[in-house]
Each structure stands twice: as C-alpha cells, then as structure tokens.
C-alpha cells in the first residue's frame, strides 16, 4: 500500500515533468521539467527499495529487516547524472540567451533552421 502510494506520487511527479516538457516553450522551464522528471525517477527508485517494516540499511541498527540498499545507491547515482544533464541544459540556455536574447525554444528552433 505504502509502496503503491509512493509509486503513484512518483508517477504524478513524472507526469508533471513530462507535461512541462511537452507544453512549455521557455528553455528554463524545460530545464525545470527535466529536473522534475529526474526527481520522479529517484522517487520511483526509493519506492522500489521499500520493504514493509524495513529499517535504513545501516548495519548498526538492530532491525529485523532492512530496505533494499541497492536502489538507494542507484538513486544517488541517478541524482548526480541528472544534475550533470541539468547543468549542461542550463549552460545551453545561457549560451542561447547570450546570443539571441530569448529563451523561447519554438522561436529559436525556427530561427536556426538551416535549409530554408
């Protein structure tokens, strides 16, 4: 039940991110959407690790069950990779803004087409 709720939350966040990516024309907003999508995957990973009644995976704790530690490690990695992607997305946005003075991807897309 708990896990389903967590999955659903993650799915909702993912839907928000994807929706933003599909509908927003501003590059900054698209960056935010990408970031939201990354977060949803982290949430999904953590939800996947959930074990009913499990403690945090630290050996010092006296507990009967621990949650699955591997998705936590993967989540950390995924966060960092998401951060890297986000950084270059922002860098591209800044570069575009410096050159064109706008961050509207739809207009930029048409302005920079090569074969007109």
């Amino acid at each position: 039940m708990m896990q389903t709720a967590a999955y659903l939350t993650a799915a909702g966040v993912f839907a928000i991110g994807l929706y933003g990516m599909l509908t927003q024309r501003d590059m900054i907003k698209i960056c935010i959407s990408i970031s939201i999508m990354d977060s949803s995957f982290v949430m999904a990973l953590v939800a996947a690790a959930y074990v009913p009644g499990g403690a945090a995976p630290i050996a010092g704790f006296e507990a009967l069950r621990f949650v699955d530690p591997l998705p936590h490690a993967l989540a950390l990695t995924a966060i960092v990779i998401g951060a890297g992607i986000l950084a270059i997305a922002l860098a591209l946005t800044v570069a575009v803004y410096r050159h064109y003075g706008t961050t509207d991807i739809a207009r930029l897309f048409i302005a920079t087409r090569e074969d007109s």
Binding site: L22, I110, R113
Partner: peptide, 17 residues
Amino acid sequence: ARTLHNLGPQAQVLLFL
C-alpha cells in the same frame, strides 16, 4: 518533407511517446 523535418522539439518528444 522538408517542413516535416523541421518538426519542433516538443512535437518530437510527443512523437517519441
């Protein structure tokens, strides 16, 4: 065909989906 190949980025994402 050329116009089609200038499909906007969001339309492309939609197409992926």
